[in-house]
């Protein structure tokens, strides 16, 4: 399977004023009341379960969907659950202008695709990117296509390291692959 493309229906994480929500922290993504859960498959039901306006996300989302978030997504604690809950729902990709440092590492290490895109705020503000749109993104080049509107956008491509870990299916698999090679 070609792994460098992903296409999917998007969810744009807007607040009541129709602005991209910034600084969504790991407690809003995955509440600490459920940290005792260790099975990734059980985590999906709590995804965004503590984010005002989005608490029913796990019921609305379908496998392959793409999440569009505001700057500093995943700020806060180092809990791996905040990535695991999206893996559990089979979310295809999260795009944001920036991520919390540890969140970004955790996602990369889990082989879960995250991309940064500086154009997001503007695209969302001028309504050129809305929930339900279908998009297609190339991880290697960062080229993005809004299929529903036939417009283009540009994200930062995955670095070689990020892509290699993603392609191997996580940091541990990646490590075993290179030590054999």
């Amino acid at each position: 399977m070609e792994k460098s493309f992903i296409s999917g229906r998007i969810w744009v994480l807007l607040d009541q004023n129709k602005r991209l929500i910034e600084d969504i922290d790991t407690d809003q993504i995955y509440h600490n009341a459920f940290l005792h859960i260790t099975e990734v498959s059980q985590m999906g039901q709590y995804a965004l379960g503590n984010l005002e306006g989005w608490k029913d996300f796990s019921k609305k989302a379908s496998p392959g969907d793409v999440l569009i978030a505001g700057r500093n997504f995943g700020a806060g604690s180092s809990r791996q659950h905040a990535v695991g809950c999206f893996i559990s729902l089979k979310i295809g990709l999260i795009i944001a202008p920036s991520f919390g440092a540890i969140y970004f590492r955790n996602a990369v290490n889990s082989g879960f695709p995250v991309l940064r895109c500086q154009e997001l705020d503007e695209l969302v503000a001028k309504k050129a990117m809305e929930t339900e749109d279908e998009i297609k993104v190339n991880f290697r080049s960062g080229e993005g296509l809004n299929v529903s509107r036939n417009t283009h956008f540009k994200a930062e491509p995955m670095s070689t390291v990020q892509y290699d870990i993603y392609e191997a299916g996580g940091l541990f698999n990646y490590g075993k692959r290179i030590s054999k090679g």
Partner: peptide, 10 residues
């Protein structure tokens, strides 16, 4: 630098 447990295991 502080990191999560996957990073430190690796």
């Amino acid at each position: 630098q502080g990191m999560g447990d996957v990073d430190i295991t690796f």
